Amino acid sequence: VFVDDHLLEKVLELNAKGEKRLIKTWSRRSTIVPEMVGHTIAVYNGKQHVPVYITENMVGHKLGEFAP
């Protein structure tokens, strides 16, 4: 499973602090992992960042699938 390192670091850091804030990313190719559930990730679609709230059903899919 591929997840960009910088994105995973941000998610794990927020989980350690117990925070839930918006994470901006250009990494549409990253796979959604269970650690991301409950976070809102702003995924770049080529024009703007689209906020995507991550749920359990999204695990295993790519971030780009949810930012048309």
Rank of each mutant, 00 (worst) to 15 (best):
Q48H: 14
L8S: 03
K17G: 07
A16R: 13
G18N: 14
A67V: 07
P34N: 14
H39L: 04
H6D: 15
V52K: 03
K62L: 12
R21V: 12
W26I: 09
A67D: 04
G64C: 14
R29E: 13
P34V: 13
M36Y: 05
A16G: 09
Q48K: 13
E35R: 04
T25S: 04
G18T: 04
R29F: 14
R28T: 08
V11I: 14
H61C: 14
G60D: 09
I23K: 02
V52G: 00
D5G: 15
V50P: 04
P51I: 11
E56Y: 12
L12A: 08
W26D: 13
S27A: 05
D4Y: 01
S27Y: 07
M58I: 11
N15F: 02
D4R: 00
Y44D: 05
Y53W: 11
P34A: 11
K20M: 07
K17H: 07
K24D: 03
K20Y: 07
V3W: 05
V3P: 05
K62V: 13
L22I: 15
L22P: 11
N45T: 09
Y44C: 14
P34T: 12
V59Q: 11
T55D: 14
Q48M: 15
G38W: 07
G60Y: 14
I23M: 04
Y44G: 04
H6C: 15
R29G: 11
V50Q: 14
H39W: 05
D5H: 15
E13K: 08
A16M: 10
I32E: 00
E65S: 10
L22S: 07
H49Y: 15
M58V: 05
G18F: 06
E19N: 08
S30W: 01
H6I: 15
K62C: 14
T40A: 10
L7V: 03
F66I: 06
D5E: 15
H6M: 14
N57D: 13
N15G: 03
N15V: 05
K62Y: 07
E35G: 07
I54G: 00
T25F: 01
W26L: 09
N15L: 04
N15Q: 04
K62A: 08
L12R: 13
F66T: 03
K24I: 12
P68I: 13
L63T: 05
R28N: 04
V43W: 02
Q48F: 13
V33W: 04
V11H: 01
L63V: 04
E9V: 10
I54H: 00
E19V: 13
K62T: 12
I54K: 00
G38F: 09
L7D: 01
A16S: 11
V11N: 01
E35V: 14
H61G: 08
V33Q: 04
G64Y: 12
M36V: 01
K10Y: 14
L63D: 00
K17D: 05
L7N: 01
S27M: 05
N57M: 10
E35Q: 12
K62N: 07
Y44E: 03
H6W: 15
V43E: 00
V43C: 07
V50Y: 08
I54Y: 00
E13M: 05
E56C: 13
V1T: 13
K24P: 09
T55P: 01
Y53C: 14
V1W: 05
T31W: 08
P68L: 10
V52H: 03
Y44K: 05
H39I: 03
L7K: 00
S27D: 04
R21P: 06
V59M: 11
T31H: 15
H39F: 07
P51V: 10
G46V: 04
T55V: 12
S27Q: 04
L63N: 01
I41D: 00
L22A: 09
H39V: 03
V11D: 01
H49I: 03
N57E: 14
Y44P: 07
P68Q: 07
V3T: 06
N15S: 04
T31A: 14
P34H: 10
N57L: 13
V37R: 10
L22Y: 06
D5W: 15
S27K: 04
Y44F: 13
A16H: 08
N15D: 03
L12Y: 06
I32V: 12
R21E: 14
P34S: 10
V1A: 15
T25M: 01
E56N: 13
I41P: 00
P68F: 10
T40F: 06
V1C: 15
L7W: 01
R29V: 13
E9K: 14
H61N: 09
E19G: 05
V3M: 02
W26V: 07
T25D: 02
E9D: 09
H49L: 08
T25N: 02
T25L: 01
K17C: 12
V59K: 07
V3S: 02
V43M: 03
T55Y: 12
I32M: 03
V52S: 03
E56P: 12
K17Q: 08
G38E: 08
E35Y: 06
I32Q: 00
G60I: 02
G60R: 05
P68K: 11
H49K: 03
Q48G: 10
E13V: 05
E13P: 00
R28P: 04
Y53P: 12
I23V: 08
P68N: 07
Y53N: 13
K20E: 03
E65I: 08
R21F: 08
V59D: 02
R28M: 05
H6T: 14
K62H: 08
H39Y: 05
P68D: 08
M36C: 03
V33P: 03
R28I: 06
E65N: 08
Q48N: 12
D5Y: 15
E19D: 09
K62S: 11
H61P: 00
G46I: 04
P51K: 12
E65G: 09
H6P: 04
L12P: 01
G38N: 09
W26C: 15
A16V: 07
M36R: 00
E9W: 07
I54N: 00
P34D: 11
A67P: 04
V50K: 12
D5Q: 15
L7E: 01
R29C: 15
I23Q: 02
H49A: 05
E19C: 10
E13T: 06
N45C: 11
Y44Q: 04
D4N: 04
I32S: 00
Q48L: 10
L14P: 01
I41A: 01
Y44R: 05
R21N: 11
V11Q: 01
Q48P: 02
H6L: 15
G64W: 14
T55I: 12
V50W: 10
H49G: 07
R21C: 15
K20W: 04
V59I: 15
I32T: 04
V59W: 04
L14I: 04
G18M: 08
E65T: 12
G60Q: 08
S27P: 02
T55S: 12
L12C: 11
K20H: 09
R21Y: 09
V11W: 01
L22C: 14
T31N: 13
L14K: 02
R29W: 10
W26G: 13
D4I: 00
E35H: 09
M58G: 02
L8Q: 03
V52E: 01
P51R: 13
F2A: 07
A67N: 04
L14G: 06
S27E: 06
V37I: 14
G64V: 06
V52Y: 03
I32G: 00
G64D: 05
P68C: 13
E19Q: 12
D5R: 15
H39G: 01
N45K: 08
K10P: 01
V11Y: 01
